[in-house]
Design a protein around this nucleic acid. Structure first.
Lengths: 139, 139
DNA sequence: TATGATAGTCAGTCTTACTGACTATATTGG
DNA sequence: CCAATATAGTCAGTAAGACTGACTATCATA
């Protein structure tokens, strides 16, 4: 089995854990929505920036933001520095959800680390970080 | 950045490499099709088995097989041991495509190993294999 | 042999993705 | 200074890939 497929297996397991924990907490978030929301900066982000970071078109990003907005998790406010743009930022409820999701991710990662042991866990992170530099050179 | 997201970044890079190499070689394969095709056994596989292994419903699997069939890469033959079932197996052209895809995957993995060095590369594989046992206990 | 399980299809829906065309605002070069 | 161009975002339309539910045909078994 190739390492990329092994990565997908682990990634999917994380996804399922996060989505199901969020569902239990009363949030109805999809994977794509979470992936976008993850990128929203503290002081708000522009749609195009979110789209670029999440590697989707701005139309797709717009739709995902709309879904998050319908659930009251994010809001769109005019960008004071650019009349064309609007800033997407978390509402209080959205911030709570984001905090909760982060906790779950860290919890699962801790489980993984416990399973692997400190040596292998740190090697995994080091290898993945190094691979990122290879495959995703900009940042 | 959490390790799961780092895994996704690397996985996507692999996906893109394989899909674009296949496209250059004249195959018009999607990621989902490739994921399913990867699971087709030498002597043919049943739809339900492919669906289970690829973690999709049998309806989805059926659609993906139909797409592969339209491109002449797989064929469905009656299962001699079970009148309800049909076996999905590669055509000669499909086998060529699968071989080509495997080469690309191995090539990219080799690049990754060269970048990481033997020590980190083997730690990465070991960690991912170990994680798989944690998150995907059946096989 | 009647009953339930299994293999697969058909129909319909939803989410996520795309392209193309568009409006509104900013920026910049002549 | 303003015409040309770039950028931010939306709207419309389409497609892939995923789902559920309902169905037929075949198999296994009590």
């Amino acid at each position: 089995m190739d390492v990329a497929t092994l990565m997908l297996i682990a990634y999917r397991a994380m996804d399922e854990r996060v989505i199901s924990a969020m569902r239990e907490a009363g949030y109805d978030i999809t994977v794509a929505q979470a992936r976008l929301a993850q990128r929203i900066a503290e002081d708000g982000s522009r749609l195009v920036d979110l789209a670029e970071q999440a590697q989707v078109t701005k139309q797709t990003a717009s739709m995902l933001v709309a879904a998050l907005e319908r659930q009251g998790l994010v809001e769109r406010v005019p960008d004071p520095t650019d009349g064309r743009a609007r800033l997407i930022r978390f509402t209080a409820a959205g911030q709570d959800a984001a905090d909760r999701a982060r906790e779950v991710v860290m919890g699962v990662e801790q489980e993984w680390n416990d399973h692997l042991g400190p040596h292998l866990a740190s090697a995994l992170r080091e290898a993945l970080t190094s691979l990122r530099e290879l495959v995703d050179p900009y940042q």
